[in-house]
Design a protein around this nucleic acid. Structure first.
Lengths: 194, 194
DNA sequence: TCACACATGTAACACGTTACATGATTTG
DNA sequence: CAAATCATGTAACGTGTTACATGTGTGA
């Protein structure tokens, strides 16, 4: 039951509709949690019933009404209690790594292509995170920010995202080099497994 | 449907019982996929029905019989086909990062403790991976290994695991420093949010 | 004797993904 | 004129987690 806490944490940034939350999850929250809009609507429904968030309907001309959600006091309490609970270890599940594990009896060039794709995605994400960081810092340097800012959480998770994408770039590059080296040698470039 | 492919990839290491597979998932496979034994038993059942793995019953004295699973030819084909499919982007979901995002209205010292715990776990895992690497290399150096070894997949995923844990160590350390610096300044050490 | 490793499984539930449904407005 | 954005949702299905159930052998 951690999606609920990710939603509550995302609402610390301020009131949002389901749709806006989904956007938020696509950009700023993507560093630490991912969810589809369907999950969000379902979860917001529950959170409202449990009184952890509050909805107000905003009527709009020529657009469907939207419901804007805000944290309630008990929502904040719940989030605070959550930070006290022991964190469970993260489950790593990465499709690309499964492909890499199987590369020796798989399609060599397809896997190489997949690694290249990941490399590009990592570069794009990193650029995006760099922009987010500039927005957060707003001219201040890091030390200044860490001392004076209202909230440091978003900055620290963003840092994790940046480091993670840098890692991806480094790792993808190394893997591509290793694979290139291997096909260049006397071994068959992509031997069919027995 | 990626658990099935992780299972097939894990069986490339050789025949295993459900129980042994669970062990394998706890150590060598943990770099790229995680699964509980319950998931594994369920998935092996299906894979057998679809003819992607084959089971043979090994009778044991004074212990329950076990079923040893092997990849079939169509299991290998399936795995190969999987490496050709486009990889979907990985969903990041990390409890600890949610806590960090919420730290400014959460329990400061509890979150710091959680980061410390993660730091220790990362160190342990890294040490474990270093040992696995030595086993894989078996005296050869990296270049030699990448040129000559039968399979490079397990090495490359292991490398990802090592880099990931190094990242964790780096990030946790930086976060702890940043938080320490922050509590040392004139701001209240752990202000209760409004 | 107590805990841990071996060995497999069922059942219930929670969570995540995909497809479908609707319909106006803005941008290219 | 087509595509993307805004805005919300239902339904069906697939995956992952937790609790329970069973029983022997081994080592501290």
């Amino acid at each position: 039951m951690a999606l609920r806490h990710a939603v509550l944490a995302a609402l610390l940034e301020g009131e949002a509709s389901g749709y806006q939350l989904a956007k938020r999850f696509d950009v700023a929250v993507a560093n630490f949690w991912s969810a589809t809009s369907q999950q969000l609507y379902r979860e917001l429904e529950r959170l409202e019933q449990e009184g952890l968030v509050q909805a107000r309907v905003v009527e709009q001309l020529r657009r469907p009404n939207k419901r804007m959600f805000t944290l309630t006091a008990s929502g904040r309490d719940e989030l605070r209690a959550f930070t006290r609970q022991p964190a469970r270890t993260t489950a790593i599940r990465d499709d690309l790594l499964v492909k890499l594990q199987a590369i020796d009896s798989g399609d060599h060039s397809a896997v190489r292509a997949a690694v290249s794709t990941r490399l590009e995605q990592a570069r794009d994400k990193l650029a995006q995170y760099d922009r987010l960081r500039d927005d957060l810092l707003a001219g201040r340097d890091e030390d200044e920010y860490l001392r004076d800012a209202e909230r440091v959480g978003p900055y620290l998770t963003l840092m994790a995202g940046q480091l993670y994408e840098q890692l991806n770039i480094h790792w993808c590059t190394t893997v591509l080099e290793a694979l290139a080296q291997r096909s260049a040698t006397s071994r068959a470039a992509n031997p069919t497994p027995r």
